[in-house]
Design a binder for these strands. Structure first.
Lengths: 242, 242
DNA sequence: CGCTGCCTTGACACGCCTCAACGAGCGTGG
DNA sequence: CCACGCTCGTTGAGGCGTGTCAAGGCAGCG
């Protein structure tokens, strides 16, 4: 199986074989995180940089009244805290209610990359900026779309992102989240998520069972959601260099 | 009057007098943007980098059905498109329904900075990451807070950010936006924004008239909004280096 | 076997939206 | 100088989307 980080970065920059070898070496030591564990907690300053290699994690924030807002899903190839060296303390937490495997990369390795491998470093900044674009897209989603299209949009995004790293086939992917997780992502109640989901299933837009989402007609779902993948800034691998 | 960019970056890195002089020089050629003009339009690739020096601008996205979502306010010292060299095409627009003044910085100048002034460059990345933190905070705002607290939170954020660049006094600041702009920011209808505002005024939390917002009791508003400025990652100027 | 977590359903309440109309302020042109 | 048209803020009435509360079903698991 191919390395998801490399697969992802190929969409953000042209890598050489040497670059790939360096990345491959960095990703060697996988570590399994059990379900419901935090990877990084708000207010701390992680010593290493964390990278998801398998499964799902999420950025989230807990409010004083116990509400939780999920602000991003981290899928294989995504960094948790690439920027913490610049920013200092984490202003949110990263956890995995579902379990995942990660790689811990020493900060010094990142420093070495920025010194010796400018192409890789540029690709890492590309990834950070795509994260920001994704965040903006979520904001549009929450602000302007009704619940059913919000949910559809989220599913489209995950399909494309997972395909990019080889973790989804043409019309389905594994999806370990609970309806409560979706509710905290979209700012809806669980009850409403449930009903909306039934509605989407009734329209044959999304079929979700046994921790797997299947999409009978991808194009129809994308139209329904108003999904435009441009914000992910994926370069088709044959494109001219940017 | 002091340069807002320098004032802002002082919160993100330790600058030397030489750094300040370089930044000062970069900001010399102001250009006025008339109200309702776009500074950068979605789908284009700007040739220069744009920096707001006075007034307000905003990142926004237009949906096919005409809805608008404002995703960020850009105040003096904020960059519009620092990252476009890495990302390629803009995935959203930047405009100013209210007029503002900006500086255009050639890309080559940014390249020079990254070669010759690593401290400044680091500060610029800090600014980008703070933008991302702000975006996350807006997501929490929209997802978890009712309209009145959303609005209060937005006002708190703007007060602090404008104070940082010397554009607000202790309890008030100029605010040229319309209620429609606020509605498109928070994902609410104008009518509801209007009523919520009256409610806040009734509680003496916010007084907004003649394009100026005044806050009778800042601490009370922050508590009401659940505002915690940590996400802005402002270093107090006496702090130890990060 | 009886937990416990998750999904599901129903009834009801409320926040927020839409439509529609009107008023205040202001620039423009007759 | 006033009439006009524009934008923006304000109000009212009514409806829908979504939240809350509460209960029950089902599967997984110790």
């Amino acid at each position: 199986m191919l390395n998801p980080l490399i697969m992802k970065l190929e969409h953000g920059a042209r890598l050489t074989d040497a670059d790939r070898a360096v990345l491959e070496k960095i990703c060697r030591k996988n570590r399994q995180i059990p379900p419901c564990a935090d990877i990084i907690t708000e207010g701390t300053k992680p010593a290493n940089v964390h990278l998801v290699m398998d499964g799902f994690a999420c950025r989230y924030k807990l409010l004083p009244d116990g509400k939780r807002q999920i602000m991003a899903f981290l899928v294989p190839g995504d960094f948790c805290d690439l920027h913490v060296a610049i920013l200092g303390e984490m202003d949110h937490s990263i956890g995995t209610p579902w379990g995942c495997s990660i790689v811990e990369i020493p900060k010094e390795t990142i420093d070495e990359l920025s010194r010796d491998h400018p192409r890789i470093m540029r690709a890492l900044w590309w990834a950070t900026l795509v994260d920001e674009g994704t965040l903006r897209s979520w904001l549009v989603n929450m602000g302007q779309r009704p619940a059913d299209r919000q949910m559809a949009h989220l599913v489209c995004e995950l399909l494309v992102r997972l395909q990019t790293v080889g973790c989804a086939d043409a019309d389905s992917f594994e999806f370990p989240l609970s309806q409560t997780d979706i509710a905290d992502t979209l700012g809806l109640s669980v009850v409403h998520v449930n009903r909306t989901l039934q509605d989407l299933r009734g329209q044959s837009l999304i079929v979700w069972k046994q921790k797997r989402i299947h999409i009978p007609d991808v194009r129809r779902l994308m139209v329904f959601a108003g999904f435009n993948p441009k914000y992910l800034h994926l370069r088709q691998l044959g494109d001219t260099p940017s």
